[in-house]
Nucleic acid binder design. Structure first.
Length: 596
RNA sequence: UGGGCCGUCGACUAAUGGUAGGUCAAGUGCCUUUGGAGCACUUUGUCUAGGUUCGAAUCCUAGCGGCCCAGCCA
């Protein structure tokens, strides 16, 4: 494989993959390659802890790590950082593998576990004890915290800090054998209790945990801490660039200290900024709470920012990858607008999603001059962005459904859709003109009557007459009943992490984040659509088939709505009550209207 | 208040001492059998104050602001 991107210095990228701007990590790698720091190797790793489902923040890291290796002809390992048996499960391991694959990345045969290295790590601990660099401490967790000092005051040395090497060796061996209770002793590195970096104040290397590990079972009852496992795992795998998020910056001196004391291969840790998205929570802990407290239907609820969730929502791996490359990489603490993510699904789905007609909130339309019992097949284009997608037939008949939003008895200014006396086009069918309406007891329009122009078949009138709008429709007799799930942001505030005193983050949960439309109508061509298939429902948005679908009834998720200029016009009018978009009629007359 | 990191259009990100550019958003126009898509155009930015320099977003100093750290979590 070539290590050089042929498009790199030739101006605009024509490969189809959007070229991401460079970033500081790429520059570091480039420089290391130039100086031969790692003999020309680039080897990264993606190291999740299998204690939950992956989310968009992980997607950023996955794209970074695999992307870097791919760009420079290197390799990426998948490594599970499974050093805390009390939180980790095989279910999570499986979902993580699945998610990485779905995103389109391949670790080939390089799947590793920190638990693979427990034996080696134990040997290294022994080595540090023998060198007088580690000791067994009998202090309680509370006492250790107390001795550690504070941000502004130095810590105090533990009374056990200067135990003889032999005693440390014996005690550590007995810890390993399971002679002591959880929490009774730890192994600590002997560094500097006065260090301004709290991580260097004799950090804990091993703790006692009598718990079953998802892979090693009960073989071990002492487990290495992150700091004692991560750098060494990178070292064993001969990782060159160990990238992680900003909060580990303060751990870098410790990362370096361990590999230096041990005298082993030294990878370099580089930190980048974590992903933040407006209206979204990207914290495994809080996402777990949402699942456990049943605020959502599971880890793959389409409202969740998990990889599983956005997949079920209908996002494509390409959209996620394009998003990750577009947001760039830096050390700034920023928050990306959710609209950016949505842009990239729309962009991708616009090119590939077949168009189809569906009516979410049906309003019955009767074409009075269309023969009863007659129906005909209209030709419809599957994807105007892609000629190779071809056409399909859609049945038309006398009784149709249109969207309730597409009819207004009192049309406001700039409203171009159907209203009494007005002619519009039914997409791929005929021009129709509204002649009258039928209302129920509450004065609501329940049926619209129209006449059609037989000469406008296909959607154009031979006399060159123009209409202001084209609306979608479904033939009532042929329609498929379907359930459609509409989603809004899970949270109502831009930063759901910010809460007032005593408030849980769940206080900002959006009560309307899920709306189930149970009586939507679909054109019949969708019969038998497979799970995960994605479509554009014309004029409405992108939708995908949910796995809750059955042979009798399809269930769709709305991935994202189409950009909606009309809603924007309406909102602007609301904001400026001066020049309103209310009725074309006089205000007094409008106020007497039966509806609202 | 100790230490670490970071401040560029509304948001994200480039410019590596030499033309402040791109994407998203917003807006205007064109086009349109999706009020979609597309096309064209437009608006807004270097945290502040000093200094070094022919020249500073970039280097230095001092302020100001933000994020992270006191788990036997990762």
């Amino acid at each position: 494989m070539s290590t050089v991107d042929p498009n790199e210095e030739k101006g605009p990228d024509t490969s189809g993959t959007p070229s991401a701007p460079s970033n500081f990590i790429r520059e570091i790698v480039r420089e290391d390659l130039k100086t031969g720091k790692y003999e020309g190797r680039v080897h990264t790793r993606f190291p999740p802890e299998p204690n939950g489902y992956l989310h968009l923040g992980h997607a950023k890291s996955i794209c970074l790590n695999f992307g870097l290796a791919k760009e420079f002809g290197g390799k990426t390992n998948l490594r599970f950082d499974d050093t805390n048996p009390s939180k980790e499960e095989t279910e999570y391991v499986e979902s993580i593998k699945d998610n990485v694959r779905w995103l389109g990345f391949d670790w080939e045969d390089r799947i590793f576990y920190a638990s693979d290295y427990f034996g080696q790590l134990y040997e290294w601990a022994l080595q540090l004890i023998k060198a007088g660099k580690a000791y067994v401490d009998d202090l309680t967790a509370h006492e250790i915290r107390h001795y550690r000092g504070t941000l502004t005051e130095p810590g105090k040395e533990s009374p056990y800090r200067n135990r003889p090497v032999d005693e440390n060796l014996e005690l550590f061996e007995r810890m390993r054998k399971g002679e002591f209770a959880d929490g009774s002793r730890v192994l600590r590195a002997k560094i500097d209790m006065a260090s301004p970096n709290l991580n260097m104040r004799d950090p804990v290397m091993y703790r006692i945990v009598h718990a079953e590990h998802h892979r090693t079972g009960n073989k071990w009852c002492i487990y290495p801490m992150y700091d004692f496992a991560h750098g060494q795992s990178d070292s064993i795998e001969r990782i060159t660039h160990s990238v992680c998020t900003l909060e580990f910056e303060d751990h870098r001196p410790l990362y370096n200290w361990f590999v230096e004391q041990l005298g082993i291969y030294h990878p370099q840790q580089i930190e980048f900024d974590r992903l933040n998205l407006t209206y979204t929570l990207l914290s495994k802990r809080k996402l777990l709470t949402l699942v456990e407290e049943r605020h959502v239907r599971g880890w793959d609820d389409p409202r969740m920012p998990t990889i599983a969730g956005i997949r079920r929502r209908g996002y494509t791996p390409e959209a996620v990858r394009n998003f990750c490359s577009a947001i760039g990489l830096s050390k700034t603490n920023g928050t990306i607008e959710l609209g950016m993510l949505e842009h990239f699904v729309r962009e991708d789905l616009n090119k590939r999603a077949p168009r189809v007609m569906a009516v979410l909130r049906p309003l019955k339309v009767v074409i009075d001059n269309y023969p009863e019992g007659q129906s005909e097949m209209m030709d419809a284009v599957n994807n105007p962005e892609d000629a190779s997608a071809g056409t399909r037939k859609v049945p038309f008949s006398r009784v149709l459904y249109i969207e309730q939003d597409d009819f207004r008895e009192d049309p406001p200014k700039q409203y171009y859709r159907l209203s009494p006396g007005r002619e519009v086009r039914l997409r791929y069918a005929y021009f129709v003109t509204c002649t009258n309406v039928v209302k129920n007891d509450r004065g609501e329009v329940i049926e619209v009557h129209c006449t059609y122009d037989p000469a406008s078949r296909g959607g154009n009138s031979p006399d060159g007459r123009k209409v202001k709008s084209t609306i979608h429709w479904v033939s009532a007799a042929h329609a498929l009943d379907t359930e459609v799930r509409l989603y809004e942001n899970l949270f109502t505030t831009e930063d759901p992490n910010k809460t007032e005193d005593g408030q849980e983050f769940t206080a900002h949960l959006n009560p309307h984040s899920l709306e189930v439309v149970s009586k939507a109508k679909l054109e019949p061509s969708l019969q038998g659509a497979p799970i995960e298939a994605r479509y554009q429902f014309e004029r409405l948005g992108y939708f995908c088939v949910d796995r809750d679908s059955t042979a009798e009834k399809l269930v769709f998720n709305r991935t994202v709505a189409l950009k909606d200029t009309w809603t924007k016009i309406e909102k602007k009018a609301e904001a400026k009550p001066g020049k309103t978009i209310t009725s074309e009629k006089k205000p007094s007359e409008f106020s007497k209207a039966p509806r609202s």
